[in-house]
Amino acid sequence: MAKKKDIPEGLFERCPKCGFSVYGKELEENLWVCPKCNYYHRLSSDKRLSTIIDENTFREYDRNITAADPLNFIDMMPYKDRIESYRDKTKLTEAIMSGVARIGGIEVCICVLDFTFMGGSMGAVVGEKVCRSIDRAIKLRSPLILISSSGGARMQEGILSLMQMAKTAAAIARLSNESLPYFSIMCDPTSGGVSASFAMIGDINISEPKTLIAFAGPRVIQQTIKQELPPGFQSAEFVLEHGMLDIVIEREDLRSTLIKLLKMFGKTYGKSSKKD
C-alpha cells in the first residue's frame, strides 16, 4: 500500500473494519468512531475517560496495587513475564484504571477496564480496585461508574480470579444497601466473569451499539451446540431486546446522557444524602 510521504507514520489510523484511513486528530474528534463505516474503535482506558469526563479532572487512585502470582502460574510463558510484557506494551499497570473524576461538574468514583491489558481480564487487582472504588464511593457519598471491557476472569489466577466475581458483587451489594447509584457501562466486549458479576447489576445498565455482551463467548457456544448462531446474537441490541440493558447509546451521546442521569439522581448522593 502506498504511503503518503509528507505525513509521518502513526498520524493516520486505519479502521479495522472497513480499512478506511483517517487522520488521527480527526478520529479523536469523532470519538474514535470511523467516519466512513461508523465502526467503534475499542478504546484504551485513558481515551475512554476522555470521551466521558470533564477535562483534567481525573485523579487516579490505587496505582500501587499490582498483580501477584499466587499460583506460580506458567502456561506458554510464566504469568509474571506475561504481566511484565503487557506493562511494557501498554504502559499500564493493570487491566483497570480507577479514581475520582467529575462529569458535568459532579464528582464520581469511576473505574475503566482496559481490553489491551490481557483482554481486560479480572484478577485480584481488578477485583480489589473495583472494591476500593466502591468503598470510596460510600465514603464520599458519590455515584459509581464502572466501565467494562473484558473477556472475563483471569485464568492465570485460577480459583482466586473466580472469587473476584463474588467479591465485586459483594461490594456492589454494600453500595446498593447505601442507596448510592451505580451506572454500569458495557463496552466491546463484556463477557464471562465480568458480565456475570458487577457489569450486569448496575442500577442502570448502559452499552454502546454493537458491543458484544455475553456470558459464554460465541465460539464456545458454537462448539457446544454445533449450529449457526442467529444474526446479531449477543450484540448490545440483542441484549437490549432480551431485557438485560436499559440503554444502548451512541458514543457521542454517552456523556450528555450520563450528566442527565446524574442530575436526576442528584438527591441520592452527596453529603446530605446520608442514610439514617
Binding site: 500501587n64 496495587i65 499490582t66 498483580a67 501477584a68 499466587p70 484478577g123 485480584a124 487487582v125 477485583g127 480489589e128 472494591c131 489466577e157 482466586l160 480470579s161 472469587m163 473476584q164 463474588a166 467479591k167 459483594a170 461490594a171
Partner: peptide, 9 residues
C-alpha cells in the same frame, strides 16, 4: 469474600 484474592501493594 471481600478479602479473597492475592495482590501486591
Amino acid at each position: 469474600f471481600r478479602n479473597m484474592g492475592v495482590y501486591e501493594e
